[in-house]
């Protein structure tokens, strides 16, 4: 019962969603719309579970690890302030503490971490260069050719632009298609395995 009922729900939900795709009636659209709405709602409930986990782990650190205590408190306090600031829906308007914390803490840090990628791309390229395998070299060489298009080099640039356009539209596209086709077949096969209850690791295995 504990195991077979969830598998039954998976099977039922999966089969309904499968046939729903081929049935254009109102009832079918209703199912599609509502099932997706419901999923989102359950996700918010799960968020409470997540916050609970975060608080528990952070509290544990604060209590038992003196080196981490200060930082654990930073997390807890900042989370507390943000929750209090966002308690009322009116605080979601521009200029409120909630939105200021979003705009001047979250946004800059988010953007800065994202921009670190500029450095990481370079160091990853160097790492691939040092690997000295045929595959890594091929990858780097193509990357180099594609990057060259940003540097003005007169006649070479013109030739390079033509070459880059060709790489992007010919070998690049061909391999991407092979990946997409393979991934598509794999995804569909996995979906079938899930619906049939053969793949059940997500329910905690057997």
């Amino acid at each position: 019962m504990k195991k077979s009922l969830p598998l039954g729900i998976v099977f039922f939900a999966g089969v309904v969603m499968f046939f729903q795709h081929f049935i254009p009636t109102d009832q079918s659209e209703f199912i599609y719309k509502y099932a997706n709405d419901w999923l989102i709602c359950i996700g918010v409930y799960a968020m409470l579970l997540g916050i609970w986990s975060l608080i528990r782990v952070t509290l544990h650190k604060a209590r038992h690890d003196p080196n981490e205590r200060f930082y654990a408190i930073v997390t807890l306090v900042s989370m507390g302030i943000m929750i209090v600031a966002g308690w009322d829906v009116d605080n979601l308007r521009a200029g409120s503490l909630f939105m200021n914390m979003f705009n001047y803490i979250l946004i800059p840090v988010q953007a800065t971490i994202f921009s670190l990628l500029a450095f990481y791309v370079a160091s990853a390229a160097y790492r691939a260069f040092r690997a000295r395998t045929v595959l890594a070299t091929l990858l780097l060489f193509t990357a180099f050719v594609v990057m060259l298009r940003m540097i003005p080099l007169g006649y070479i640039s013109e030739l390079n632009q033509y070459l880059v356009a060709w790489i992007l539209s010919v070998p690049n596209l061909a391999a991407k298609r092979a990946i997409i086709m393979g991934v598509g077949l794999g995804m569909m096969a996995t979906s079938i395995k899930i619906i049939l209850g053969i793949e059940r690791q997500y329910l905690g295995g057997d």
């Binding site: 969830p6 939900a13 089969v15 969603m17 795709h21 359950i42 598509g184 569909m188 079938i192």
Partner: peptide, 21 residues
């Protein structure tokens, strides 16, 4: 697990058709 089953079943069913299309 019942809720989880609903989430996974619904997404698996839609993946089955969505990707092909």
């Amino acid at each position: 697990r019942w809720a989880l089953a609903f989430i996974v079943g619904t997404t698996a069913g839609s993946y089955l058709t969505r990707y092909l299309r």
